[in-house]
Amino acid sequence: MSSTAAAPVEDLDDDQREAVQHLLYRLGDDEFVAAERYTEWQVRAPTLESDLALSNIAQDELGHARLWYDLLQDFGYDEPDLLFERDPETFRHSTMTELPFEEGDWSDAIVRTYLYDVAEDLRLEALEDSSYGPIRDRVGKIQSEEDYHLEHAESWLDRLASDDDGQRRLQEAVDRLFPYALTLFEPTDPDVEARIVDNEYRTEPLDELGEEWLSNVVPKLESYGLDVPISEDGTITSADLPPEIGRDGNHMDDWESLYDDFTQTYRDLGRTEATTLMEDPS
């Protein structure tokens, strides 16, 4: 994979290059790791039909990761650099995406996809007018697949919340996931984050995205009779965050075993390249 001829990487100075890369890593790593977890539901979902639907969402997210990683190739990396030979401590995904699913905990899958997809919607909106053309150009294609994801998550929330057992399990999922979901809005590095916004690679700062997200998901979850574990006045402090936020490369042990699993074949076979089947994305 390598991207469009018009990639304006050369026009960036070192600080700008770092900022664009951090932004792309956040995006690509979130999608990739979220998709890895979603695929755990294949052949394990509640019904055959719901299995196909969640599999499709996993493939969509993986396809989005592919689009973002492709833009990182303009900076001289190939797929092994970006995934299979990459130091696991340099991954920038939110720790919510790396949490394993407990067997049968469909409420986790639903709450997680819901929290994630609302955040994804907002961040894509904030990339529509990115000053970095290659990012801007890919937003629309991703957005049109996200509509289904959100509708899927909300429909399930609705069904599960109307059942006593479902309601109880949703509440447990919200309690467990919510602190991790907040890491979606944490910076990879405060200085680099400031540059992402100053250069308008993303046109909204993270704290504003986070507030919008809260004003969206909190009332929605409450409308299903669910309690959201944040303070009365709705402010978020670092005390609300989990010990590992992921964005800074600090991850949980679950990430290490996930990383070992997905790189296993590549290592066992002694591969140095990753096979591509499709043409370069655009």
Binding site: K141, E145, D147, L277
Partner: peptide
Amino acid sequence: ETSFGGTTDKSYRWSTAY
């Protein structure tokens, strides 16, 4: 209201990719 088959490249689903 929807994009059947998605909007990103999914040619991996088709035998023509192989």
